[in-house]
C-alpha cells in the first residue's frame, strides 16, 4: 500500500514498513503505517487487489498479524489479549488461529453516512414531529465516519432527540389521524398473504442486495448507477407481487415483504445522491470522478418526495459553522 497513499494523508503516513512498525511499538517520531488509513481507502485497495487477480481463495485478501512473533516475545498472548473477540471468532468459525496463520478478509458495509435530514441541535426531521438519531440520521459524520464515533453519536444525539421530542409532544399535543389512510395501509400490509402464486420476498431482497453491491458499491460510476436505478424500478414492480404463507405472528417472510418498500426507497436515494455527487469524497469513490471537488464540499445532496411521489433531488448549502465550533477546530488544528 505504500505506493497508494492519498495526498491528504501523505505527510502523516509512514514511508517504509520499518517506520510503520516503529509507530506500532510507540515511537512518537514515526508515522502511521498505511494499513491504518481510513476504511474506505483500505476497502478500495482490497477490491483493486482482487480485481487484479491477486485475491485470496474466497475472493478477499490475506491479513497477517502473526508475523509480529518475529518482533516481540509472547506475540500469541499479546494478540489474544488485544483482540480477544477476533481471536475467538476466527478460532470458532473458521478453525483458524490468527496468532499462527494469516486470516482472509474482505470489505463489508461500513456505515450509512447519509440518512434522514435532521436539525443539528434538536434532531428534528423535516416531517413535523419526527425525530431521528444514530445511523438513520444524516450529518454528524460528514463524508466518512471514523471508528468509535457511532457510539458517541448515539449517546449524545439520542439524548437530545429524546429531549426535543418530549418538548415537541408537550407543546403540540396529539396530531390527527386519517382513519381511511390507516385502514388503507393496514389492508395493504396484509396483501402478501392473499397473493397465491406471488413471488418469495427473500428472492427480491437478495437480488436487490447483489445488484446494489455490484453497481452502487465500493467503486462507483454513473453508468453503473443509472443501470441500478433501472434495476430498482423492476424490483419495485416485483415487490408489489409478493406472497408469504402463515399469519402475522413473528413471520420473518412477511417482515421482509414489508421491508422491501423501505429497502428500495433507501437504495434509490443512495443511487440518485451518488450520481448527483460528481466527485470522490470520504466513503463515496467515483471511478469517473476520482478527485475531490471543493464546490461539492459546500453542499449536501437532499432528496424528498414530490407531489407525484417521485424523488426530487436538490443541492443544499451546508450551513456555516458556528463561531464557537470554528474556534475549537482552529485550536485543535
Amino acid at each position: 500500500m505504500f505506493d497508494d497513499i492519498p495526498d491528504l494523508y501523505k505527510d502523516q503516513t509512514a514511508d517504509t514498513e520499518e517506520e510503520g512498525w516503529r509507530y506500532v511499538i510507540g515511537d512518537r517520531d514515526a508515522r502511521r503505517p498505511p494499513e491504518l488509513l481510513t476504511r474506505d481507502h483500505v476497502a478500495r485497495c482490497i477490491v483493486r487487489e482482487v480485481k487484479a487477480g491477486r485475491g485470496s481463495p474466497h475472493g478477499g485478501v490475506f491479513l497477517d498479524i502473526a508475523w509480529i512473533k518475529e518482533k516481540i516475545p509472547n506475540a500469541a498472548e499479546h494478540i489474544k489479549k488485544k483482540l480477544p473477540s477476533m481471536y475467538h471468532q476466527f478460532k470458532q468459525l473458521a478453525n483458524l488461529d490468527i496468532t499462527e496463520e494469516p486470516m482472509e478478509i474482505g470489505p463489508t458495509t461500513h456505515y450509512i453516512m447519509g440518512g434522514i435530514r435532521v436539525d443539528g441541535d434538536t434532531q428534528a426531521s423535516t416531517v413535523l414531529g419526527l425525530f431521528a438519531a444514530g445511523e438513520c440520521a444524516a450529518g454528524i459524520n460528514g463524508a466518512n465516519r471514523l471508528g468509535g464515533n457511532s457510539l458517541s453519536d448515539l449517546i449524545v444525539f439520542g439524548k437530545r432527540a429524546g429531549e426535543y421530542a418530549a418538548i415537541f409532544a408537550k407543546e403540540n399535543g396529539h396530531g390527527t389521524i386519517d382513519n381511511d389512510e390507516v385502514e388503507r395501509i393496514a389492508k395493504g400490509t396484509l396483501e402478501p398473504f392473499e397473493r397465491e402464486g406471488g413471488e418469495n420476498p427473500y428472492t427480491i431482497q437478495q437480488d436487490l442486495q447483489e445488484m446494489m453491491q455490484e453497481l452502487v458499491g465500493i467503486v462507483r460510476t454513473e453508468e453503473e448507477m443509472v443501470q441500478a436505478l433501472e434495476g430498482i424500478e423492476q424490483l419495485k414492480r416485483r415487490s408489489a407481487n409478493t406472497f408469504v404463507p402463515g399469519n402475522i405472528d413473528f413471520n420473518p417472510g412477511w417482515h421482509t415483504a414489508l421491508d422491501l418498500h423501505n429497502l428500495l426507497t433507501v437504495s434509490e436515494a443512495i443511487a440518485r445522491a451518488a450520481i448527483e455527487r460528481k466527485e470522490s469524497r470520504g466513503g463515496q469513490y467515483r471511478d469517473d470522478y476520482p478527485a475531490k471537488d471543493p464546490e461539492f464540499g459546500k453542499v449536501n445532496v437532499s432528496l424528498k418526495k414530490d407531489a407525484d411521489g417521485r424523488m426530487q433531488i436538490a443541492r443544499v448549502w451546508i450551513p456555516e459553522m458556528p463561531v464557537e465550533l470554528k474556534q475549537i477546530i482552529e485550536e485543535m488544528g
Binding site: 475467538h88 471468532q89 418469495n200 420473518p252 417472510g253 412477511w254
Partner: peptide, 19 residues
Amino acid sequence: IQAESASDLACRWNCKAGK
C-alpha cells in the same frame, strides 16, 4: 430454509458473531 421453503419460520438473531 427461511428463504427457500419456510418464510414464516420464526427465529431470533442479530449479530451473527456470537456477541
